[in-house]
Every structure is written in C-alpha cells, then in structure tokens.
Design a protein around this nucleic acid. Structure first.
Length: 903
RNA sequence: GGGCGAAUAGCUCAGCUGGUCCAGAGCGCCUGCCUUACACGCAGGAUGUCGGGGGUUCGAAUCCCUCUUCGCCCACCA
C-alpha cells in the first residue's frame, strides 16, 4: 500500500487485496524452503474438478486449509499447501459432450482420439479457472507445485500402481452385475451410485404354470426386467410352496418356459414368497442364478432401452418386436398395460424403496451384467482398520472415524473400469492369438509369447483411481524425489465428509500400501454450506452463493471471517443466498472495526521505532515495572496473554470458530471498548505516560494482527506493514505470538472494578435519560483500599461520565440513583431534578428481589447437609463467600430504599 | 431396515472434563447518541418452560432412559 494513501474511515478491501496477493506471490512466500530449518507442515488440497467454478463449498474448504497452513507457517513450520485439479472423468466428459450436442455433433462422430483432443483443449482453456479464483480468497498455496491428475507425471504414478496391483494379484477381471448409468454410458462403483428413497410401486404379476393348473404370483418393482427372467424361486423353508419346486411356469409376454427353483436367497415373508430371477439385471439374482447354473440373458441395451443387439439370437428372442428399442420406463408402462390385458396383473401396491442414482447426472442406474476390472479391497481395508485402531490417523469430528470403520468392515471390491474416453486408459493389452492379457508399464509392441498383434483395453480408469494417490503422486512418486522424501507423509487433510469413502479412505489405502505410511495424521471433515432451509447449496436449486460476489462486496477477509466464525466442529454452516449483507455483515463489520482501530493506533505510533514499541512490553518483566505501567496497561497485557494462549490452543484443536472468536472479542470488547478509551488522555498528552501507552497499544495491536492473520490475511498484512513502517515487512512468515508471562489476576480484578463502576454510572445515566453533554456528580463509597487505588488510577474513565465528589461515602440523601458495586462498594449519582423517585425505587426493588431470591436458594443449599458433606470443600467455600457478599449487598440496597422513602 | 448426531433468544449458533459466567454471541428488534478511530459505530434495553416426560446426583442446558421432531452415514428384502 502506498505510504501516501491516507487511511480512509471506511475499509475498502478491493483497494488492497489483489495487490497484496500479487506481492506475496512475487516474493515466493507460499513456496516452502527446505533450508529454512522448519519442520515440514504439509496439506494437500482436495483437487477440485477441472470443470469446477468456485462455489461456497470450495470457499469454505480452502479457507479452513488456509487458516491452518498460515498458522503453521507463522509458527515457523516449512509449510507446503499443494494445490491441483482433478481431470474428473465422467464430469468433464459430460461437459464436453454437452458442448458437442450444442454444436450438433457427438463424440461418436468425432471418434475417440479427436474427442480426447477436444477435451484436452477445453481443459487447457478453462481448467485453471478455479485455481485463479482460489487466489482471490487468499489461498496461500504453492502454485509452483500445482498438480493435475492427468498430467504425464501423475499418469505415470497411476500406471505404476495399476501394474503393481496386477502383479500382486489384487486386480482382476470380474463378470458380474454392476451399477450402470444409462446416460453416462459407463459402469460406476458402489460409492458412485447413491441411494435415494423414492415412492415406487410393487407390481404383483401372475406367471401361469406351464401345465395350465394355475399360476404363481411374483412381486417386482421393475416389471420390465421380467423379460430377462430365467426362473422363479421360493425359499426352501417355505413349506407350502415346496410343491411348486421343479415345475415350470410360462414367462408372460416372452412366452418361454422357466423353472421354479428353491433358494435360500428368497426372503421369507416379503412380497408373495415367489421371487423372479433376473441374473443379468440384479446382483442377488445373479448369485442365485449362478448357484443353479442358470443362464443370464441381458435384455437391456447400454442406454436402457429394451433388447440388446449384442445379444440378439441369444436374448433378443425374449424381447417382442413391439418392445424392442423402447426406453425402460416406457416399456414398464406398456408391459404393465399388456399384463392387465392378459389378466396377469394381480395388483399394484405403493412401495417406498431406495433407488440408486448416478452421482454425476442423477439418472437412475441400472444393474447390469458386464465385465469390469476390480481391485480387491479386503487387504487394504484390514491394514487401514488396524492402523486406525492404533491411532495412526484421527478424524475430526471423531464420529466420522466410526463411519470409516463401518465402511471398512463391509467393504466390497472396487470397480475401477469406466466405459469412457476421458481418463487414464487401462494399461492392459490382449493377445487374441494366445488368448492372454497383461498389464504393461510401457506400451508393448507385440505379444511377448507369440509376437502377434496386441490390442489395448478400451476402458479408462475411475477418476478416483488417480486421486487416491494424490498425497504422494503429487510429490513425484514413483520417482524417489527430494520432495517425496521431505514432504511425505503430509499432516492434515481437510475436506467435506461426502468424499470420506470416495477419496479419504482410499488415500489411506494407497498411502499404507505403496508408501508404507499413513498419508496424514489428521482428517478434518468440515460441514456443508447450506441455505436457510438447510438445503445443500447447488447449481440446480439455484440457492448458491458466489464467493467472488462476496469478495467483491465485502472482501475476502469478511468472507473468511464469517465462514470460520460460524464453523463449530462437526456442524454445517448456514448462509442466506438471498441476503448476502445479513450473512456477511459480521465479517465486514469486524474488518472495518479492525481497520479503524488501526487508524487510531497507527495515528499515534507510526514512526515509532520497533525497539521503542517493544521496550515496555516484550522484554523482560523488569523493563516495564508496575510503576511505569498503568492499571489499564497491566490489565490489557494480561488479557492479551490469555488471548494468545487460547487462540493458539483453539487452532491446535481445530476449533476454528473459537480461534476466530477469541481475538475478535479481545480486539473489540477489551482493546477497543476499554483500553483505547482508557488511554486516550495519555495518547492526547492530557496525562503522563503517553510513551508507555503507545508502546502497549502498538504491542497489543501487533499481536492481535498476528492472531488474526490466518483468518484475515489481507487486512492484517496491510495494517502490519503500516505498523512496521515498510512495504518490505510481511506478517505472512510470522512469528506467531507467544504469551509474555503477563497474565495478572490482580490487575484484572482491579480493572473489572473500574469497569463495573463505569457500567453502573452509564446505566444510571441512560435510565434517567441524562443527555450526553449533561454533567452529573457521583460519589462512591469504597469498601477496600484497592478499590480506591483502582478508581484513582483510571479516574478519567469515570470523569467523562460524572464528576466524582467523594470516594469515601455515597450520600443516601438527595435526589439521585444508587447502585451496588462489587466488593461491598456502592455508588450514588446525584441527578437533581432528573431523578424519578418512583422509578428508582422500582429499579432498586427489582434488584433486591432478585438478590433475595438467589440468596434464599443459596441458603437452602448451604443448609443442605448432604451438600456440605458431599460437595468438594472449595465449592462449599465459594458458596459461603457468595452468601457473605450477597448478604451485604442486600443490606446496602435496603438502606438505599429506606433513604429514598420507598414503600 | 441398521448405525450415529442434533434439538438453547425472532434467525444462525456457542456453552469443550455436571457446581454463577443470576443461560451467552452475532444478526435482527426497541431507546438515546454523527462523544476528537469507526453510524459497517457508541451507550442502554427487551426476548429463552435450555424440544416433552421420567431418572441419577447434594447439585443437570450439561449424565442416563423414553417420546417427538430434524439431520447425517450405511443398506441386495424383490
């Protein structure tokens, strides 16, 4: 910030933020320095999708990481926050396909190679959008290490991992029913097919017995799949149905005969007891079919239309011509109608059940029999469970660790192949001549055995198969790089709970397996950003908040403050997209407050040398004795020490709301509201001790700027530079404040007495409607010598509100208002004609009544022998002291009431 | 269906290891102030059966049980 610019009364973030960020980058402050002597502190950013634009979720996620990273950087750690993006197979392919649709073409028209080039061009153009946006909110990433899951380096890691797992026998080709998205035209992992409860129907359909002796009734939610039925099953324990086993039924519409079999997979008591078996389109049915050696005809095409051309001749005959090519839901409607005509539809029941949806396009997924590549998960899960049990990784909040365990215990093999074009192509080659297949680190030229031609697997890998390597692939693995040696394992992973299984768990798998060590010791899972109706913010609902709008309106610091301040461990954060001002006012207001405190302090200390500023406060305790420090000085330094200690503890425990709230309240409630007011006479030369006051104020301000820097990096840096008087100064690299051994309970007690006195005078003035410029006289009866000392020390605080006529007695005669002060002291404010005796009586009466009620409760407590016997002695002692003090207060109040002549 | 969490001021939430912070904050609201850093401010103020019921304890917003409501995670009853 140019020195010539006067600080305006209203903070304007836009004027400084982007310039400061550019300077930070130019000076390389976010790039770690292995020679710094600091122990590494590493955070890897959850890579946003290359197609992403910054939304509030990213904003929250990045803010949390930045707060933690900046804190550790200031503490002297060699901090590395490694950013990057994810190629996001399905999501990105979808985006580009939509573009092609607009252009009136398709990826199939383009062909695979051209399509991939097209996506690459798209990514090159827009892929770093979100990273640039992250800079606008102040993210202190080391951009020189920016990674990308589909870069050559990371692709190499992916390939190495695939081949190693292949060699270890942990990758296999499976023929089974997987989740298939008919819109994305790819298989999905179990995690990618999300459950959602929907109201559906249970269709009861009669299958006539082949011998014409009646029928059996099956119940299904997906009638269209009946064309793929190969049997009807009953539970072997179902006595009354045993007579059907071995007989044949005629499958309606397809008009083919299928057997009735017995299998324990049929749930007793559900539906009709007769289960239609569709091996190709239901995972359970597939297992049952296999047990009985039944065929598994596929009757749905990849796009979920009826009839699969690839199976024509085998399965095609099952699909009548009028249904062939019909969409699954249309077919359902038509077939239900046909069954009605045939009098084979017994009934339709409403039925609520969970349906799986594609996590990328929300289309209802179709279970589908196909060949896919799988990774065996059991060995990984066992290692992870053990490591978690041993405490090698902890989750915040803890309950997420329980979810983690639960998932591990029920883990199933991971389907890693996707029928897409965008991604890492599976490095498996087939030799049709030898009928062999093998995974290769380098592209092979020909079959090793027969030298015949090879063809590569057409599929690509699940996007998460590259991101699960993120904590070490980004550091150069499989090369044994210096980065890898120094910065692995990382420290803290910060992400949203939604991807605990997709990503976090699998990173733990990969880290344990390939590096032999947990990739991070702490997983901090923050809440979700929601609107006032507690709905997740999303593009489709249109209830999102653009963080950049907030930055433009109120500044990045205000955004970060608001988000952090509202972030209790394990809770969601609620913001109102329809009222940005209400949502972010607290952050904006606080930034403005900080700015103005800066204006006042800087106005008095700018130009003061750092040595002068530190002389009184930072050096040994002796350098600033109680005789040179005023009561207010000692009080604020005590408060400051506590603030430093607590803020540090909160950050260490990831209690971000408290880590923000603590310096907030210190700055506003203690420093601005009381200390600055207390020292104004000294600052303006009306009293002695200006130098000390300036030094203490500067020290407190400097310290609180540091404490706030992780949360509000821009404004704190701007003010810090002013304070240091140089543009080359920076707060980014610390140091982080340490407590100065100045916690001082006595000073706190004494100053609290002054505050109580000031509050009492203010309350009386306000209650009596005394105009601000109207003078009143007050007298105080102190009960102990230190109270007099305290009031004399900070007499100017009260002098502004009332002229003190005496510290020895508070007259009980004359028109005025009384108040009871702590420690047996009392206050009288003479109000002349302003006093309303009736009102004063009421006020004191209420106070007395309240006190008496409390006293009665306390008496009962102290009369309770069980309490005396069982409560800890110190608690009993405290209660006794309270009784003495309250009793005195009541007698004082009674005397006041009497003197006022109240009824 | 299984597991878990939460219910505190009009709104959004603190209240971490049961004993006054007579139950707190921010926003909003009411009153008075443009007091020489700040009206994005200052001072004063109102508002709560701490979801309902029961229990443990000398003592419960805080621990236990139960009911109600909301939320999260998991799930192959067609």
């Amino acid at each position: 910030m140019p020195e010539t610019t006067e600080l305006s009364p209203q903070y304007s973030p836009a004027a400084i933020e982007s310039a400061l960020y550019a300077e930070w980058l130019a000076r390389g402050l976010f790039t770690p320095d292995p020679d710094s002597g600091g122990k590494p502190f590493v955070v890897v950013m959850p890579p946003p999708n290359v197609t992403d634009k910054l939304h509030t979720g990213h904003g929250l996620n990045a803010t949390v990481q930045d707060v933690i990273v900046r804190f550790e950087r200031m503490r002297g750690r060699d901090a590395l926050w490694l950013p990057g993006t994810d190629h996001a197979g399905i999501a990105t392919q979808n985006v580009v396909e939509r573009l092609l649709t607009k252009e009136g073409t398709t990826r199939f028209d383009l062909g695979r190679e051209a399509f991939v080039r097209r996506v690459e061009a798209f990514v090159a153009e827009t892929g770093s959008t979100i990273l640039v946006q992250l800079q606008a909110i102040g993210a202190s990433c080391d951009w020189t290490r920016t990674a990308y899951t589909l870069s050559p380096a990371l692709s190499r890691a992916v390939r190495e991992v695939f081949v190693r797992l292949w060699e270890e026998g942990l990758i296999y080709r499976g023929h089974r029913v997987i989740h298939w998205c008919p819109r994305c035209l790819t298989s999905l992992s179990d995690e990618e097919a999300e459950h959602a409860e929907r109201d559906g129907h249970l269709y009861h359909i009669r299958y006539p017995l082949a011998d014409g002796s009646g029928h059996v009734t099956v119940a299904t939610t997906r009638p269209e799949t009946m064309l793929g039925d190969v049997a009807v099953a009953v539970n072997p324990a179902d006595q009354e149905k045993q007579r059907f086993v071995g007989r044949m039924v005629t499958l309606p519409i397809a008009e083919i005969a299928i057997p009735i079999i017995a299998d324990e997979g049929v749930e007793l008591g559900f539906g009709t007891g007769f289960l239609k078996i569709t091996p190709a389109h239901d995972p359970d049915d597939f297992e049952i079919g296999r047990r009985h050696g039944l065929p598994a005809p596929v009757i749905l095409a990849p796009d979920a239309t009826l009839g699969d051309a690839s199976l024509e001749g085998k399965a095609g005959g099952r699909v009548p011509p009028e249904l062939f090519g019909m969409d699954r839901f249309e077919a359902r409607r038509v077939m239900v109608e046909q069954l009605k005509q045939l009098k084979l539809l017994e009934k339709i029941e409403p039925h609520r059940h969970a349906i799986r949806h594609c996590y990328r396009c929300d289309t209802i997924v179709e279970p589908r029999l196909s060949d896919q590549w799988f990774v065996k998960m059991k060995p990984f899960a066992d290692d992870a469970l053990r490591a978690h049990r041993e405490g090698q990784v902890r989750f915040i909040p803890e309950r997420r660790g329980d979810e983690f365990n639960q998932w591990l215990e029920n883990i199933r093999d991971w389907n890693i192949s996707r029928q897409l074009w965008w991604g890492h192509r599976i490095p498996v080659w087939y030799c049709d001549a030898c009928r062999t297949s093998k995974a290769y680190r380098e592209d092979p030229k020909a079959c090793e055995r027969c030298a015949g031609p090879l063809r590569q697997d057409e599929d690509v890998l699940d996007t998460w198969f590259s991101s699960w390597l993120w904590p070490f692939s980004t550091l150069g693995w499989p090369e044994q790089t210096a980065d890898l040696a120094r910065y692995y394992p990382t420290d803290v992973l910060v992400t949203a709970p939604e991807i605990l299984f997709f990503w976090v768990a699998r990173m733990i798998f990969a880290g344990m397996h390939f590096m032999g060590r947990m990739p991070f010791h702490t997983v901090y899972l923050h809440g979700t950003v929601r609107d006032t109706q507690h709905r997740k913010m999303s593009k489709s609902l249109g209830n999102g908040i653009d963080p950049l709008d907030v930055v433009r309106l109120y500044g990045a610091d205000a955004l970060r403050f608001t988000v952090t301040n509202g972030l209790a461990v394990g809770t969601d954060i609620i913001l109102d997209p329809n009222d940005l001002e209400a949502s972010f006012a607290s952050g904006r207001n606080f930034a403005n407050k900080l700015w103005n405190v800066g204006r006042l302090v800087l106005g008095h200390v700018e130009g003061m040398s750092a040595d002068d500023r530190r002389l009184w406060t930072v050096d040994s305790r002796q350098s600033a004795t109680n005789s040179t420090l005023s009561l207010a000085d000692r009080w604020i330094l005590s408060k400051l020490d506590r603030c430093v200690r607590e803020t540090t503890e909160h950050l260490e425990r990831f209690r971000l709301n408290d880590a923000t709230g603590t310096p907030y309240h210190f700055l506003w409630d203690d420093f601005a509201d009381w200390y600055l007011e207390a020292i104004k006479p000294r600052l303006y030369g009306e009293e002695e001790g200006g130098e000390v006051a300036r030094a203490v104020a500067a020290h407190c301000f400097d310290t609180v700027l540091r404490l706030l820097h992780p949360v509000m990096p821009f404004i704190t840096e701007a003010l810090h530079r002013r304070l240091e008087g140089g543009a080359d100064a920076t707060i980014v690299t610390g140091p982080w404040p340490a407590p100065g051994g100045r916690e001082d309970p006595v000073a706190e007690q004494h100053f609290a007495f002054v505050q109580a006195t000031v509050d009492a005078v203010r309350a009386i003035r306000a209650d009596a409607n005394v105009k601000p410029n109207q003078a009143v006289a007050a007298s105080i009866a102190v009960a102990e010598a230190w109270q007099r000392t305290a009031l004399e020390a900070e007499h100017s605080m009260i002098a502004r509100l009332a002229r003190i006529s005496s510290l020895d007695h508070a007259p009980s005669a004359g028109p005025g208002a009384h108040a009871v002060l702590p420690g047996g002291a009392s206050l009288f404010v003479a109000l002349g004609d302003a006093i309303d005796v009736g009102r004063e009586c009421a006020r004191l009466g209420e106070e007395l009544a309240r006190l008496e009620k409390q006293l009665a409760a306390l008496d009962a407590k102290l009369a309770n022998e069980k309490f005396l016997a069982k409560a800890p002695p110190e608690v009993v002692a405290t209660e006794r002291e309270k009784k003495a003090s309250w009793t005195e207060k009541t007698s004082v109040l009674r005397a006041k009431l009497k003197s006022l002549g109240c009824a």
